[in-house]
Structures are given as C-alpha cells and as structure tokens.
Amino acid sequence: QETIEVEDEEEARRVAKELRKKGYEVKIERRGNKWHVHRT
C-alpha cells in the first residue's frame, strides 16, 4: 500500500483519477488540513 499526501481535495481527486486509470484501487482520506490518497 502506498500513500500520497497532497494539499487539497482537488489534487487528491486528480491523483486518484490518474491511479484509477492505471488500474489501481484508491481511497481518499482527509487528515486535518492534508489529504491522503491510499493506493490499495
């Protein structure tokens, strides 16, 4: 599992979309004022 930390929701969604295109399962999680995209 890989976690990518980004600054805002828009970027989290963009990253998640790219990963989904490559066939990964992803989960977006908010952590305080950061966003984490988990590749599962």
Rank of each mutant, 00 (worst) to 15 (best):
K22G: 12
I28V: 09
E9N: 08
R14D: 02
Y24Q: 01
Y24P: 04
E2W: 05
T3M: 15
E2R: 12
E5R: 11
K21P: 07
D8A: 15
K34T: 08
Y24H: 13
E7M: 14
I28D: 01
R30W: 06
E5K: 13
N33A: 14
R14M: 04
E18Q: 02
A16Y: 02
V26P: 12
E18Y: 04
E2V: 12
E29A: 06
E18K: 06
R30E: 11
V6E: 00
A16G: 06
V6H: 09
R13Q: 08
D8E: 14
E7P: 15
E29K: 12
N33E: 13
R13M: 05
K27Q: 12
R14C: 06
H38Y: 07
V6I: 10
Q1H: 02
V37P: 00
A16H: 01
R14K: 11
R31Y: 03
K21F: 13
R39L: 04
D8V: 15
V6F: 15
R31M: 12
V6A: 09
V26S: 12
V6L: 13
D8H: 15
K34C: 03
D8G: 15
R39I: 06
T3P: 12
R30D: 06
E11F: 06
L19E: 10
R31W: 07
R20D: 07
T3K: 14
G32P: 08
T3S: 07
N33F: 08
R39V: 08
I4H: 04
K17A: 13
V15T: 09
E11D: 05
V26K: 00
G32C: 05
G32L: 07
I28S: 08
R39P: 13
I4P: 01
H38V: 09
A12R: 00
E5L: 09
R30L: 10
R31C: 05
K17Q: 14
H36W: 08
R30M: 14
L19M: 02
K27G: 08
R31K: 11
K34R: 11
A16T: 01
Q1C: 09
R20S: 08
I28T: 09
R13Y: 01
V15Q: 07
V26Y: 02
R20C: 14
E9Y: 12
Y24D: 05
E18V: 07
V6M: 14
V15L: 08
E10T: 14
V37A: 03
E7T: 15
E25P: 09
E18T: 15
K34P: 00
E9K: 07
R30K: 01
I4K: 14
V37T: 02
N33C: 11
R13C: 01
K34H: 09
L19P: 11
I28Q: 11
K17M: 00
A12C: 03
I28H: 10
E9Q: 13
E9P: 11
R39M: 02
I28N: 03
K21L: 11
K17W: 05
E11K: 01
E10W: 13
R20E: 07
R20Q: 10
R31Q: 07
H38M: 11
R14Y: 03
H38F: 12
E29G: 10
V6P: 03
K22Q: 08
E2S: 11
I28R: 06
K34I: 03
K27S: 05
H36S: 04
A16P: 00
D8R: 14
H38Q: 15
E9I: 14
E2F: 09
L19K: 02
T40I: 04
E9L: 11
E18M: 08
I4R: 05
R31E: 10
A16L: 02
Q1R: 11
D8N: 15
E18D: 06
W35E: 02
K27P: 02
E9M: 15
V26F: 00
N33R: 12
G23M: 07
K17G: 12
E25W: 04
E25L: 07
E2Q: 11
R20P: 10
R31N: 15
H38E: 08
V26H: 01
A16Q: 07
G23V: 01
E11L: 10
E5I: 13
K22L: 04
K21N: 09
Q1D: 03
K34W: 04
E7Y: 12
K27H: 00
D8Q: 15
R30N: 01
E25F: 01
R39A: 13
E5S: 10
R14S: 01
E18C: 06
E25D: 15
E11I: 15
K34G: 11
E25K: 06
E7H: 14
G32K: 11
Q1V: 09
W35S: 01
E25Y: 09
E9W: 11
E7R: 15
Y24C: 08
E10H: 09
H38D: 07
R30C: 05
N33W: 04
H38A: 11
Y24V: 09
G23E: 07
T40W: 14
I4G: 01
N33H: 13
K34S: 05
K27F: 01
A12T: 01
V6K: 05
Y24N: 10
H36N: 13
W35L: 04
Q1N: 14
T3I: 14
E11N: 00
K17S: 07
V15P: 00
I28E: 09
R31A: 05
W35T: 07
K21C: 12
K22S: 06
R39T: 05
A12H: 00
A12I: 01
R13L: 04
R14F: 06
K22T: 07
R31F: 09
E29P: 00
K21V: 11
V26T: 09
V15M: 14
K34F: 10
K34A: 11
L19T: 04
V6Y: 05
A16K: 03
K27C: 04
N33V: 06
E2T: 13
I4V: 02
I28W: 09
R14W: 03
E2C: 06
T40A: 04
Y24E: 14
Y24W: 09
A12P: 00
K21T: 10
R39C: 10
E9H: 15
K17T: 14
E25S: 14
H36G: 10
G23Q: 05
V6G: 02
V6S: 04
T3Y: 13
E2N: 14
E5V: 14
E5H: 10
V15N: 02
A12V: 02
I4F: 08
T40R: 13
K22R: 10
V15I: 07
T3Q: 13
V26E: 04
G32Q: 12
L19A: 03
V26G: 13
N33M: 02
H36V: 10
E18G: 11
E9A: 13
E11W: 11
H36F: 02
K22P: 03
K34D: 02
G23L: 03
A16M: 01
E11S: 12
G32A: 09
G32W: 03
V37F: 00
E11M: 13
V37S: 00
E2L: 03
R39Q: 10
E7S: 10
W35A: 04
G23C: 03
K21A: 13
I4T: 03
I4N: 08
K34E: 06
E11G: 14
R30Q: 01
I4C: 08
E5Q: 14
H38K: 09
E10M: 15
R39G: 13
G23T: 03
Q1E: 07
R14L: 03
I4L: 04
E25T: 14
I28C: 10
E9C: 04
G32M: 06
E10N: 13
R13K: 06
K21S: 09
L19S: 09
I4A: 02
E7K: 10
Q1L: 08
E25Q: 09
R13A: 01
V37C: 07
E29T: 13
H36Y: 11
E2H: 05
E25A: 06
T3G: 09
E29S: 10
E2K: 13
V6N: 09
K22D: 05
E10F: 12
E11T: 15
Q1P: 00
R13F: 04
R14P: 00
E2P: 10
Y24T: 06
E2D: 12
E18P: 03
